[in-house]
Design a protein around this nucleic acid. Sequence first.
DNA 1: GAAAGTACGTACCTTGAGGTAACCAACGGA
DNA 2: TCCGTTGGTTACCTCAAGGTACGTACTTTC
Lengths: 131, 131
Amino acid sequence: MSTEVSSGLQALEGDVFDINCPSRGVLEHVTSRWGVLVLAALGEREMRFGELHRRIGGVSQKMLAQTLRALATDGFVDRTVIPAAPPQVSYRLTETGDQVAAHVVGLVGWIERHLPEILAARDVEPATAAG
Amino acid sequence: MSTEVSSGLQALEGDVFDINCPSRGVLEHVTSRWGVLVLAALGEREMRFGELHRRIGGVSQKMLAQTLRALATDGFVDRTVIPAAPPQVSYRLTETGDQVAAHVVGLVGWIERHLPEILAARDVEPATAAG
DNA sequence: GAAAGTACGTACCTTGAGGTAACCAACGGA
DNA sequence: TCCGTTGGTTACCTCAAGGTACGTACTTTC
């Protein structure tokens, strides 16, 4: 493991290549199917549950709630309940969440911008060399 | 859709929030459980199949091969066969692959460095406010 | 007073991601 | 001749991700 014991202290840094390192779990929350999109959406601005649901095409309420819970547990998302007539719950990135989201937004943005090239490359596809 | 038809042409840019946009598929290849780790590993240097298999803890041959195929289809990874006595197959990032990998490596690196904070935040966890 | 909106929780069921194991082909070494 | 190595493929099976549907509690609107 990377989070070794060193003079009584622990947890220096993670190593995602190590199957036993807890960073694997965090990485999988962040890069999960809906985790990426939630972080990208909240990277734009604070949003309520319903707004997120409409913004992220194809997500079910169940998965959205589950994803938000996982990201909140990791301390990336902050949940605020406004006890109003119809309950209003707002979600925003924490400081650390803002930093991960920046990386995620960068990645997502790159893919969006280069999509035409990628799609074009799929058609050419040089048969992946001679087997 | 985002890849709209505009004066006879198409495919300007992707929109990952649109469930029908092909960028969704690319994003899921890149952020898949093993896709991230393959990109991060190849971001370090060119590697052979066996090297990747040993570097990425917990991946099976089947999933490694499958992931490499997906990334090669999207044009992120280049496959080179050296027809030697025991067949040698080398994998390296393409130019575009290098760019996505840079984002992925940035994200992975951030998580590795901030892992202690994230783990600490999980323990505090203010009960996600009053329900 | 019935329906709809808000923000979920939960039960149920399907799909597919992913693990295991066996097999292959070619060669070198014991 | 049999084993081991390399880089896979394929069949088979399991488990969890994730979808559908319904319940809830309160309020506004038609």
